[in-house]
C-alpha cells in the first residue's frame, strides 16, 4: 500500500513538473522576440534562423502570385512582338490574293483541300517560332521572378531576426527545393505545343475555309462573264486569221480565247481589289485578332497552371477540380 502510494505521488509530481515545464517553454517561446526579454537575455549563441513551415509556405505562395502577375503583365507586349510579322504580312498576302496567279493558286489549293497549309505558310510563317520564344521567355521570367521574390521575402525575414543571423539549413533546403521544383513544373513551353500552336493551325484552317467559299463564289460568277467573252473572242480571232488557212484560224481563235480569259481574270481581280481589298484586309486582321486572343487565353491558362503548382491543395479541391 505504501509502495503504491509512493508511486502515485511520484507520478502526479512528475505530471505537475511536466506541466510547469510546458508552461515555461511556451512562455519562453512566446516571449523570445519580445524587446524587453531580448534586452535582458543575452543574444542566443546559434545565429541561424529557421522560418516556420507555414510561413515559408505562404512565402512560396506569394512568390507564385508575384511571378504570375509579372508574366501576365508582359504577355500583351510579347504577343504583339510575336504577331507583328503576321500583321505586317497582311498587305503582301492581299497582293497575292488579288493577283491572277494568287487566285489560281488559291483555287487549286482549295480544290485539293490544302488551303489551310498554304495560308499557314504564307500568313503565319514565323508565328510558331515566335510563340515558342514567347513561351520560353515567360518560363524564364516566371522562374526568375519566383526566385527573386522568394529570396527577397526570406531576406526581409532574416533582416528582421537580427543583423548576423543566417538562414537555417532546413529553410535553405525548402527554398532550393521550391525554386528547382518550379523550374521544371508545368512549363509554358510544353503547354504552348499543346494549345497555342494547334490554335494557329485551327485558325489558318478556319480562315482558309472562309476564303475557299469566297473564291468558289467568285470563280462561279466570273465563269458566266468569261464564257460569253471567250466564245466571242475565239470566233473573232478565228475570223481574222481565216485567210491563213484552217490551222491559223484555230490557233488565232485559241490565242484570242486565252488572252480574253486571262484578261478578263485580270480585269475582274483588279475591280474586286478596288472594291473589296480594304474589307478583305480587315477580315484577315479580325481573324488574326481572334486567333491572338485564343493564343493569349492558352498562355494565361499555362501561366495559371504554373502558379497553381506553387499552391497547396486539399483532396476535396483536387477531386472537385477534375
Amino acid at each position: 500500500m505504501k509502495r503504491g502510494g509512493l508511486f502515485i505521488r511520484s507520478f502526479w509530481v512528475a505530471i505537475l513538473l511536466m506541466a510547469a515545464l510546458v508552461i515555461g517553454l511556451s512562455v519562453m517561446a512566446m516571449m523570445r522576440d519580445h524587446p524587453i526579454v531580448a534586452r535582458i537575455l543575452p543574444p542566443p549563441a546559434p545565429v541561424t534562423h529557421e522560418i516556420p513551415e507555414t510561413r515559408l509556405g505562404q512565402m512560396i505562395h506569394d512568390a507564385g502570385e508575384a511571378a504570375y502577375a509579372a508574366q501576365t503583365s508582359r504577355l500583351d507586349g510579347l504577343l504583339e512582338a510575336a504577331f507583328a510579322p503576321v500583321y505586317a504580312g497582311i498587305p503582301a498576302y492581299a497582293d497575292f490574293h488579288y493577283s491572277v496567279l494568287g487566285e489560281y493558286s488559291e483555287l487549286g489549293a482549295a480544290a485539293l483541300g490544302q488551303m489551310g497549309e498554304g495560308m499557314e505558310t504564307r500568313l503565319f510563317p514565323q508565328l510558331g517560332a515566335g510563340l515558342e520564344r514567347v513561351a520560353a521567355d515567360l518560363d524564364q521570367g516566371f522562374v526568375a521572378t519566383f526566385r527573386d521574390h522568394l529570396e527577397g521575402q526570406i531576406s526581409d525575414e532574416l533582416a528582421a531576426s537580427g543583423a548576423k543571423v543566417t538562414l537555417g539549413e532546413m529553410t535553405q533546403h525548402i527554398q532550393q527545393d521550391a525554386v528547382s521544383r518550379i523550374a521544371v513544373t508545368a512549363p509554358v513551353a510544353v503547354a504552348i505545343t499543346l494549345t497555342a500552336q494547334p490554335a494557329v493551325k485551327a485558325a489558318a484552317a478556319l480562315m482558309a475555309k472562309k476564303m475557299a467559299t469566297k473564291i468558289a463564289g467568285k470563280a462561279a460568277a466570273k465563269g458566266a462573264v468569261k464564257a460569253t467573252g471567250v466564245g466571242g473572242g475565239a470566233a473573232s480571232g478565228a475570223a481574222i486569221c481565216s485567210p491563213g488557212g484552217p490551222i491559223a484560224s484555230v490557233l488565232c481563235g485559241a490565242g484570242a480565247a486565252a488572252v480574253i480569259w486571262f484578261g478578263t481574270d485580270a480585269a475582274i481581280v483588279n475591280i474586286d481589289e478596288y472594291f473589296n481589298r480594304d474589307e478583305f484586309e480587315a477580315d484577315l486582321r479580325m481573324m488574326i485578332d481572334e486567333n491572338r486572343a485564343e493564343v493569349k487565353q492558352g498562355l494565361l491558362a499555362a501561366l495559371n497552371a504554373r502558379r497553381e503548382a506553387t499552391e497547396d491543395f486539399t483532396f476535396r479541391e483536387a477531386a472537385g477540380a477534375d
Partner: peptide, 23 residues
Amino acid sequence: LNWAVIPVPHGITGMGLPEAVSA
C-alpha cells in the same frame, strides 16, 4: 479535416517517392 481542410503541399505531386520521403 483530412479531406477538405488540411492542405497537401502541391510540390509532392511533382516529386518521386524517395524524394518526397527524404524531404
